[in-house]
Simulated assay, not measured.
Amino acid sequence: MAKTTTVATLGAALVELGLRVLLVDLDPQACLTFSVGIDPEDLDKSVHDVMLGGVRARDVLIELEDGPDLLPATIALATAEVQLARESGPEQVLRTALRPLRPAYDWIIVDCPPTLGLLTVNGLSAASDVLIPLQCETLAHRGVGQILDTVHDVQRLTNPGLQVLGVLPTLYDGRTTHARAVLEGIADTYSVDVLQPAIPKSIRFAEAPAIGETVLTTAPTSPGAKAYRALAEALAH
């Protein structure tokens, strides 16, 4: 969940800074779409239709009040991997679909699936930068190496300009030796930047998506909200 929470909250924080932001939900579970208050089952069209049905991205966009715009997902994306494999240049489909929208936004943030298949490769092929949220309370850091291997493949094959912004520590509890050790291990093992501030562990993050909002509005003075605002400030400048 930290991945989707980061996309939704960072997007909202960038909007607070006066920037024009589009969120793209590329996960068949549609967690991002749910978390901003949209029920995927109510949607006729989604990013799936944009990538594989010839529908223009601007015709699927949802403009959210006081927040980023959204290119939503539905369960239809679950079949996209098989369908994309039949396309010519299957890893570039999202990049092509988003190209007409790029002038309208300062930031386009893609929430990739947790698996490293063709959908994720599409997200990476369309991106200029990669931010890797890392849960500091698990062995999730093992996945960082796999993600970086995929990034290197994409750099070599489809998107040579792709940059790794760094790893963002989430669910971070600085009081535990384990969390601190995970962070130190990441920097030492993978030679990537560890972004600051770390996003603290908080029940507030679980509460916000249930009502279609982010912690910036449900708990605006909480440490989590302050951390995401500080991250947005750092990335925007």
Rank of each mutant, 00 (worst) to 15 (best):
V60F: 01
G18Y: 03
S46V: 12
L19S: 11
D59L: 02
Y172H: 15
E91H: 11
E65C: 07
D42H: 11
A232D: 06
K45G: 09
R229A: 00
E207K: 14
D49V: 09
I132M: 01
V192Y: 03
T217H: 04
T138A: 00
L61G: 12
P169Q: 05
A236F: 05
V192P: 04
D25P: 04
L26S: 02
T217M: 04
A225F: 02
L168Q: 05
T138C: 01
V215K: 07
D39C: 11
Q135L: 00
L71Q: 00
D49A: 11
S222V: 11
A8P: 02
L157V: 14
S46I: 14
P133S: 00
T170K: 03
T221C: 10
Y105A: 07
T218M: 10
D69C: 12
D66Q: 15
P197H: 10
Q155G: 01
L77C: 09
V36K: 02
D69V: 13
I109M: 04
L61P: 13
E137P: 13
E233T: 12
R95L: 11
R229D: 09
L94T: 10
I211K: 13
T176P: 10
I199F: 02
K201I: 10
N122W: 07
D129K: 05
P133K: 00
V151M: 13
R204W: 09
A181M: 11
Q83W: 05
R204Q: 11
L195H: 10
A73T: 13
E207S: 12
Y105N: 00
L52H: 03
N159S: 13
L171A: 12
A208P: 04
D27L: 05
A78R: 15
Q92P: 01
V192C: 04
A225I: 04
R102W: 06
V24C: 00
L118N: 04
T79C: 09
T115F: 00
E65H: 09
E213V: 07
G54T: 13
H141A: 00
N122T: 15
L84A: 00
A225M: 03
G166C: 08
L101I: 08
T177C: 06
V144G: 05
D106R: 12
E137G: 15
L118H: 10
Y190V: 06
L231N: 11
A12Y: 00
G161Y: 08
P28T: 04
R20G: 12
I199N: 07
L52C: 09
S128C: 13
D153M: 01
S222P: 13
G37R: 12
L32T: 02
V47W: 14
L43S: 13
L157S: 11
T5M: 09
L61Y: 08
K3I: 06
R58N: 15
K45C: 10
A126Q: 00
V47R: 10
T33G: 01
E91F: 11
N159K: 07
R20Q: 14
T217I: 08
T9V: 07
A57F: 14
P114G: 04
L43Y: 14
D69Y: 08
R20L: 10
L195F: 05
V55F: 09
E87L: 12
A76Q: 15
L235N: 03
T189S: 14
A232I: 10
T4V: 07
W107S: 07
I75M: 15
T218F: 08
